[in-house]
Design a protein around this nucleic acid. Structure first.
Lengths: 168, 168
DNA sequence: CTCAATTAGTTGAAGCTTCAACTAAAGAGT
DNA sequence: ACTCTTTAGTTGAAGCTTCAACTAATTGAG
C-alpha cells in the first residue's frame, strides 16, 4: 500500500470530464442512430468498417480488432446483423477455422443511408464543437491512452502498420 | 439529405482514436477494479462520489447526476450495493417521494481500500501517460463535448454552480 | 381545496455484453 | 505420423443497462 498518490485538483477535474464523456457519449451516439436507423453505434461502426474493407469482407478476428471488440461480442452482433440481411458469413477457404464476414448490398445501402445523419451527430458533439487544434489534441491524447490499453490486437496494429498482407 | 459533409482524413483519424478510447477504456478500468475489489468502475465511482458528499449522503437524483447515469440504472445498482452492505437507503424526511443513499462504514472502508489501486490504473492509462499540457487539453476538450450532450441534469450543473443549498 | 400535471423512484422484461466452456482446425515438436 | 498447444470462432448462461409502465408524493391552476 503506497498510501495515496492522489490526483491534484486539476488532474481530478480533467479526469472527471473524461469519465463523463466516456459514460455519456456512447449513449448520445446510440440515440441518434437508434432513432434514425435502428442501429446501435457499435453496429453502425461495424458495418462502416466492413464497407471500407477490400471486397467489403473481413475475417472475424480482423473485424473484432477494427471495431475494438471481443470475439464473442462480435459473434453475437454479426449473427443478428446477418439475420437482418446486412451481412453474410462464409468460411474462409484458406483457413478452415476462420470465418469471413461480408457486407451485403442491402448492408451497403444501409451504411450509405445512415452515414450522413451519423456524421452530423459526430460533428455536433465532437468535431465541430471543438477548435481544430483542440480536436487534434484530443485525438493525440486518445492515441496515447490507447497505447497503454494493451492493444486488443487490432487498433494499434491497424494504425501503425501501413498495410499487412492479409489477402484472403 | 445534405449529401455527405464527410470528415477530412485528419478529423477521421482523431475521431477513430476517440471511438477506440470510449470503447476500450471502460473495460480496462473495470478489469482492474473487478480483479482487485470485485467492483465495476461505475460501482466504484458511485461509492466514491458518495464518500465525498456531506454526511456521505445524496439523494438518488443527485447521485444519478453525479455519476452520469439514468435513474433506473442507479436504482438497480444501489439495490445491489445495499445488499452487499456498502450503502443504506432511507426516505428523505423533507420530501417523501425522495430517497437518500448513504455510504455505510463498510462502504467507506471499501472505497478507502480500493482507491489506491484504482488511482494507479487511472495514472497508468491516462494521467501519467500524458504530458501535463496534454491532460489539460484532453480535459478541456471533454468539457466542451459534455456541453453538447444535453446535460443529464447533473454533471454540467455540478461543475458550474459553486455549491447548491441542498441541505437535507 | 381539489384535480391535473409533474417529479422521484422502483420494478420487471428485453436486449446486449461478458464470461467460461466448447468445437474444430492449424502448427510445433519429436 | 502423432500428440500437444495454440488459434478461430461459436454458444449458452449470467449479469448489467435500457425501456416502458407503474406507484406515490408534490406542485400548480382554478
Amino acid at each position: 500500500m503506497t498510501e495515496s498518490n492522489w490526483l491534484s485538483a486539476e488532474q481530478l477535474d480533467d479526469w472527471l470530464s473524461v469519465v463523463a464523456v466516456v459514460e455519456l457519449l456512447p449513449g448520445a451516439l446510440d440515440a441518434q442512430l437508434q432513432a434514425d436507423a435502428g442501429l446501435s453505434h457499435y453496429e453502425y461502426f461495424l458495418l462502416a468498417q466492413l464497407s471500407e474493407a477490400p471486397e467489403r469482407t473481413l475475417r472475424m478476428t480482423e473485424l473484432a480488432g477494427a471495431t475494438n471488440a471481443t470475439l464473442p461480442r462480435l459473434s453475437h452482433v454479426v449473427k443478428r446483423l446477418e439475420q437482418r440481411g446486412y451481412i453474410e458469413r462464409f468460411p474462409c477457404p484458406s483457413d478452415k477455422r476462420a470465418t469471413n464476414a461480408r457486407l451485403t448490398d442491402e448492408g451497403w445501402e444501409k451504411v450509405v443511408d445512415t452515414a450522413p445523419g451519423h456524421v452530423g451527430a459526430v460533428r455536433r458533439h465532437v468535431v465541430d464543437a471543438l477548435e481544430p487544434a483542440q480536436l487534434r489534441a484530443l485525438g493525440e491524447a486518445c492515441a496515447v491512452i490507447l497505447a497503454t490499453l494493451d492493444p486488443p490486437a487490432g487498433f494499434a496494429a491497424r494504425r501503425q502498420a501501413p498495410s499487412a498482407d492479409d489477402a484472403v
